[in-house]
Design a protein around this nucleic acid. Structure first.
Lengths: 217, 217
DNA sequence: TATCTTAATGACCGACCAGTCATTTATTGG
DNA sequence: CCAATAAATGACTGGTCGGTCATTAAGATA
């Protein structure tokens, strides 16, 4: 006996505007989960609720899809951070603390953090992607911190530590925490407390290890 | 006119003892270069000067080969470093400088540095392997730096920055340089000068960014 | 309602590769 | 010198997956 109420569902819907974002979101999840090479476009399409053919309506290639994912996740937060830096008026110590705090909330704690691991892992096999990520994300992140440090030096708050590597070195502990979260953290019971970790970073970065005779308030 | 001296070279030699080591060495190079999934066993065999069939005479599977490489690779410059730390008698600042310097010479500048990238990249696919590497290498590296910092605190040279994350944070810039060397460095023209980089790390780590009124000699 | 446009489909192709095995031949022992 | 042994080969298989395209049908238009 067949059901009398027959609801015929359409086999698909036309949603031209929503598809790219949904596909990029699905791709981000799978890239982080499995890596770039190991992610199947069939799976990306399935997770976004479409067929693989549809994916190719909106993205030229797998690499094109990857770049779209990067642009969506990093470009906006970075631009905001640059804006924040340009208009900040407090002390440079507070500025750096605030940059780290925002970094963690906007990127480090989100899925996007996994892209860092991904790109480091696959840089050898996809140099084009690595170059893209380097220019769009890394270079600008280092420059951001470097700029904050220069500001401190100009205002007489910081020592002149040389501006070639100081931005890079300041970033390193934050990047390591992001890498940790997406590599060892899932298979080791030792977890990191982000708040305490960031507090220690800023303390060490600003004040150093060496005992000072008269600490500046 | 054909050459009268006819040297017939054998198509291959039997070298049962030498094969596994040569295959493992070739695999190490290619794993570091391309990652686990992207490494072709045909290429490993070719680099070792044999055919793929021969590889399967000595290793059960690709994964088996990978594990063999790891086992052979994690030798102990770490043990030497631990020994060095235990017997060092100078200032703690010098100790930390020396640890970084040795770290770079013995690990960072060698192929071994690529293992860090490899493990981070494949941690998701081989959690048991990641756990092993974590316990044997990472944990001990963090502990080493942490121990050096504790020594400084005990001798009144360093401030007490808390011993939960200080070792990890100190390591981060060095690890990042190793990762850089095996990910972005080959495809971006911006190179790092290790000597200058390490000098900046130690300066920042020991003295911090903030201006001090009376720096300690 | 009839017609048109195009979003969406999914079967298909070709390249790639881990792993197999029948065959070849270097080496050894009698 | 002649088997006998086993180290080494490389063509082959089965499965996977990025990318293509002829076909289908949803939604727009009038």
């Amino acid at each position: 006996m067949s059901s009398p109420a027959k609801i015929i569902e359409p086999r698909w819907e036309r949603r031209k505007d929503a598809r790219p974002g949904e596909l990029a979101a699905a791709a981000l999840e799978l890239f982080i989960e499995r890596g770039f090479a190991a992610t199947r476009l069939d799976d990306v399409a399935k997770r976004a609720g479409v067929s693989k053919g549809t994916l190719y309506l909106y993205f030229d290639s797998k690499e094109d899809l990857f770049k779209a994912v990067i642009r969506e996740g990093y470009v906006a937060p970075l631009a905001e951070a640059e804006q924040f830096l340009a208009t900040f008026e407090g002390s440079s110590s507070d500025l750096i603390c605030e940059i780290f705090r925002r970094w963690w909330v906007q990127v480090g704690a989100t899925d996007q953090a996994g892209m860092t691991k991904l790109i480091i892992a696959e840089a050898g096999n996809f140099p084009e992607l690595a170059r893209f990520y380097h220019d769009e994300v890394i270079q600008r992140s280092h420059a951001l911190l470097d700029h904050a440090i220069k500001r401190g030096i100009a205002r007489g708050e910081f020592r002149d530590v040389g501006h070639e590597y100081s931005g890079r070195i300041s970033c390193a502990p934050m990047v390591m925490m992001m890498l940790w979260k997406h590599s060892f953290a899932p298979c080791v019971d030792h977890q990191i407390d982000p708040e305490k970790y960031i507090a220690t970073i800023t303390d060490m970065l600003l004040n150093g290890l060496t005992v000072r005779e008269s600490p500046k308030k």
